[in-house]
Amino acid sequence: MMKGLKKWRLFSLLAVMMVFLSGCGEDYISALKPSGQVGKEQFNLLMLATGIMTLVVVVVSVIYLLAFLKFRRSKVGENVIPKQVEGSHTLEVIWTVIPIILLLILAVPVVTATYKFADVAAMDIVDEDGNKTALTVNVTAKLYWWEFEYPNQGIVTSQELVVPTGQKVYFNLKAADVKHSFWIPAVGGKMDTNVENLNKFYLEFDKESKDLKDGVFYGKCAELCGPSHALMDFKVKALSPEAFDAWVTAMKATEGKVADKASTDLGEATFANSCLGCHAISGTGVSGAPGPNLTTFGDRNRVAGFLKHDEESLKAWIKDPEQFKPGNLMTGKYGELTDEEIDALATYIMSLSVEK
């Protein structure tokens, strides 16, 4: 009876694993379906390493099975000791040289790719007017959200990275508080963001994200950073170069935009009195704000990186951020806002957009 139960337990475990593994092939988040040149090269290295390991496992397994079958007691007898080959110089050379060859086959392309991905010299190239030619994004990881500054364009946003396709996008990575790690599984990465030093690398986006689920690639923090580490998501919109230029223009057009404390719109007035100290609604400027820039909040597909993008989710977040992201640094007197003010505030924030 117990043996039968154990078999069913194994079957159930395999069934559960199949459910989880079924999500590994999604284009918007899977490293096994790369959508950029960096991701494709890293995938090829993964396949090379897997091939070598599979070869080793197969060869060792075959040798083991042959020895097991050839020298089993039922065949050679109880008291037969097979010929011993210990001290064989030939065998010692073989099992020393073969691993070295396999390591070289793996190490050479890995080291070559590592130096290639670390080559960010193009970040400093300028044109005749002294303007940098490469698109650079300064990424700052915070508890538990992401800030993206485009220094050459003079704009800043958060939680949703917007990039053009068909060109290298260079990243300056840093952390504002504790160690995090920047990773877009379907495109490439990952790279740590540290408080003490600046890390640099680049990615390439081969295709637009509009046809993916939710119209975005998913980004993750890949370094355990606190109680809400699993909820530290960001999204990536990959646009055509023309659409990206239009987005940059729209962001620049928000310069000087602020919420008015004396506004007749209750949502705007509430925002100005309760939120403006931490959250900007202008896409121009530099990084370093205490809270996420909300200029494009209405264009996003998630609230707080993981909640459904609607007013009900936003109102729930405003009322109690700690309930959803324990340890986050959003503070304020939200308990003092009336339900009417929270309703109006959510409507106002959802209206912030540069794409509509």
Rank of each mutant, 00 (worst) to 15 (best):
M1K: 14
L13A: 02
A15K: 00
M17K: 05
V19W: 10
L21P: 02
L21Y: 13
G23F: 15
D27M: 11
I29F: 13
K33N: 11
S35H: 15
G36A: 09
G36C: 01
G36F: 06
G36T: 02
Q37F: 03
V38K: 01
L45V: 06
L45S: 02
L48R: 13
A49Y: 11
T50M: 15
I52H: 12
T54P: 01
L55W: 13
V56E: 13
V56Y: 13
Y64D: 12
L65D: 08
F68Q: 12
F68K: 14
L69M: 15
S74R: 10
K75L: 05
L91M: 07
E92C: 10
E92Q: 07
I100T: 09
L102D: 06
L103H: 06
I105S: 11
V108I: 15
V108A: 13
T112P: 03
A122K: 14
I125T: 15
K132F: 08
T136L: 10
V137N: 03
N138I: 05
Y144V: 04
F148S: 00
F148T: 03
Q153W: 07
Q153E: 15
G154P: 01
T157D: 01
S158N: 10
E160W: 05
V163S: 01
Q167A: 07
K168S: 05
K168C: 04
F171N: 09
K179Y: 10
F182K: 07
W183G: 08
I184H: 00
P185G: 05
V187R: 03
D192I: 06
N194Q: 12
E196D: 14
E204S: 04
E204F: 02
D206Y: 01
K207Y: 12
K207I: 10
S209I: 05
G215N: 10
V216D: 04
A222T: 05
C225L: 05
L231H: 03
K235W: 12
D245N: 06
A246W: 00
A246K: 03
T249S: 04
G256S: 08
K257D: 01
S263I: 00
D265P: 01
E268R: 01
E268M: 02
A272T: 03
G277C: 07
C278I: 09
S287M: 11
G288S: 12
P290G: 08
L294I: 03
T295L: 04
G298H: 08
F306G: 04
F306N: 12
E311S: 13
K319A: 11
F324S: 09
T331Y: 07
T331W: 02
K333S: 12
K333Q: 14
Y334D: 04
T338R: 01
I342P: 00
A344Y: 00
A344H: 02
L345V: 09
L345T: 04
A346M: 04
M350S: 02
L352Y: 09
V354T: 14
E355S: 14
